[in-house]
Amino acid sequence: MRIFGNRHVLGWLLISPAVILLVTFTHYPSISSFISSLFSRGNPIRPAQFVGTDQYTAMMQDPVFWTVLENNMIYAAGTIPASIGLALLMAVLVDQMLPGRAFLRLAYFTPTILPMIAVANIWLFFYTPEIGLLDQVLRPLGIDTPNWLGDPDTALWAIIFITIWKEAGFFMIFYLAALQTQSPELKEAAKLEGASPFTFFWRITFPLLMPTTLFVLVNAVLNSFKLVDHIFILTKGGPNNASSLILYYIYETAFSFFDTPYAAALTIVLLAFLALLALIQFGVLEKRIHYR
């Protein structure tokens, strides 16, 4: 009995660092956000009151919420497949024996190691009408360029492009690592059987990369709901919320409008949404993945 008790204690002790971190930084904030989302916005003069689901009803009627939600869907659809596809392509390219291979790898990876804010400031001057790099290159060629960040039709896409540029190099590293663990015997065997390079990639390389793809996909999905830095510098969510995303709207609500309960309600919705996505990804996709 004593031994059992000790083992029990030992077990708890062993997982306690993880538990403490998770509870402090994940579970407790989630629960307290949920509780605070059930109250009205208070101040020292008028204290907060319990209002039940009022914040959520208000959210349903808030046109900005629907705009940022739609924007975020477009942003996710625009960034995830493109950055993963590009990462895979780049990884396959630099996995081969090319002259200057190390330099190429570094070049692809560079966007990832630059600080986000610095990157955004550089791109701000790329996109600036008239004096920006893009306009200076395209205008002399007779291409009529839009006001990239100032036009509601292009602002979000301009940000999507930066994200792809920044993420692809990061995901490439994972693919590259996975590719290098693949045994060269597979390639030799395929050659003997007379498989074309495309068949080899599609039937052998790609399926073997699936665990990496899942990992990269989970990261890409999370990142697509995590972006705020670029928006701060580039558009502040404008024009007229055309490039605002959920997290930026939460920030604005909490710190610009001081409406913490509504920000909490938005946070809960975002959390629920991400939890759902994670369930789908791990529940459905994982079953189809072949781990060695």
Binding site: L124, E130, I131, N147, L149, G150, G238, P239
Partner: peptide, 19 residues
């Protein structure tokens, strides 16, 4: 005046470059 939003942060540069 150009169409679309005109950026507060880069406007001074536009002026200084004679745009």
């Amino acid at each position: 005046m150009p169409k679309g939003a005109i950026e507060w942060g880069t406007l001074r540069q536009n002026f200084l470059e004679g745009k």
